[in-house]
Nucleic acid binder design. Structure first.
Lengths: 212, 212
DNA sequence: GTCTATACGGCGATAGAC
DNA sequence: GTCTATCGCCGTATAGAC
């Protein structure tokens, strides 16, 4: 019975290594920014999601803007790493695979929705081109994705563009919250069905949906 | 020389009929919301754009949220009216027209970018699905567009979906500000070129672009 | 129809204790 | 490494004059 510590629920937060705490905050911020956008999210909402105090969030990242930039970089990194994984798996597979690369990349993209923060925080950055710092990051990231598709997946420019178009459509569908009204609106169901194909269940599962 | 009024620049605003003033504010708000998003825009920025006082903006629309909803409704109306115009023109034309409907609808969509407020304020609403009132309007508007394509343009569900996908891609390109760096980045130029086709000049002309 | 003045709340950020 | 307290700005909205 030496060093008995947390008998009942501890009120005071545990002491956690900075690096680990950073990642926890980034994950929470990713979610909050995804739902509310950069301007709409508050550092306090992020703090609550991460179960720490608001000043600590600011303390660790300097400013809200810097935090957003890190969230953006993290999301972009996860997205690109995921796509590269699919490409690598295709390279080492048989020459004429059953599933074309484009299709598997699309599926991998849709699977990313299991963490709603990734694609939606990216989407929010894209829409903020007017902001000097966020806009710059958004443009750079957007082009990075295009180059990955063109140079690493060996898509033609036209194919890369229409792949990204489908991606933006998917992001928009998720962002609007259409999947959450799937059961209550025939048109929404039809549109989602057509747009997502067999991967629709992944999307629906990831959207805390129910009638309304 | 009866009732000489504005010899030098008037300081005090002119008295303008409410209906007309409303439209002026809506147009300004459309622009500001398009650049900054709902949360990022302030009623004061809108007031300055419309050259009136901030309280008057609020007075006329009640709340910032109601103003945004009206901007959204106006944008949606303009978009749908534009698309219906194209459809109507095709109906009264020869049975086998030179230009397929899908293509002309796409061109009309791109032309809408001449008023940056329309498509971008819509885009900002789409991304705010989480908000109870704005999200609801966004979902409803998004589905209205889909239904128009399916029921009035007689697109198959798949064609309607991919038409909208291209639209979302276009919106995203504009929102990120990629057209503004057209001259300074080869990849951006290539992507824009491929995505917009012959209508690229419309986009570039509408984007106050220049190197950087 | 439009403005000035201002109340009021909220949010990002800083100071400093533990 | 984490918190509490708090400052100061900014933004929406209201009151009321002209």
């Amino acid at each position: 019975m030496s060093s008995v510590s947390k008998t009942t629920a501890e009120k005071t937060s545990e002491r956690i290594p900075a690096a680990q705490r950073r990642e926890m905050i980034l994950a929470s911020a990713s979610q909050v920014f995804a739902e509310r956008g950069y301007a709409g999210a508050t550092t306090d909402q992020i703090a609550q999601a991460a179960q720490i105090s608001q000043p600590y969030v600011v303390r660790m990242f300097g400013t809200k803007e810097k935090l957003f930039i890190e969230v953006h970089a993290r999301a972009l990194d996860i997205l690109m790493t995921t796509l590269r994984g699919v490409i690598a798996r295709h390279s080492e597979a048989d020459p004429a695979p059953e599933h074309p690369l484009a299709r598997d990349l699309g599926y991998a993209y849709i699977d990313l929705i299991n963490d709603r923060g990734i694609l939606l925080s990216l989407m929010h950055s894209f829409v903020l081109g007017h902001d000097p710092v966020i806009g710059a990051a958004a443009r750079s990231g957007f082009l990075d994705i295009y180059r990955l598709l063109r140079d690493e997946a060996h898509f033609s420019p036209a194919d890369a563009s229409s792949f990204m178009a489908q991606g933006m459509m998917f992001n928009t569908l998720v962002a609007t919250g259409l999947p959450t009204i799937y059961d209550s609106d025939d048109t929404a169901a039809e549109l989602l069905d057509i747009t997502c194909g067999p991967k629709l269940d992944t999307l629906l599962a990831a959207s805390g949906r129910g009638a309304i």
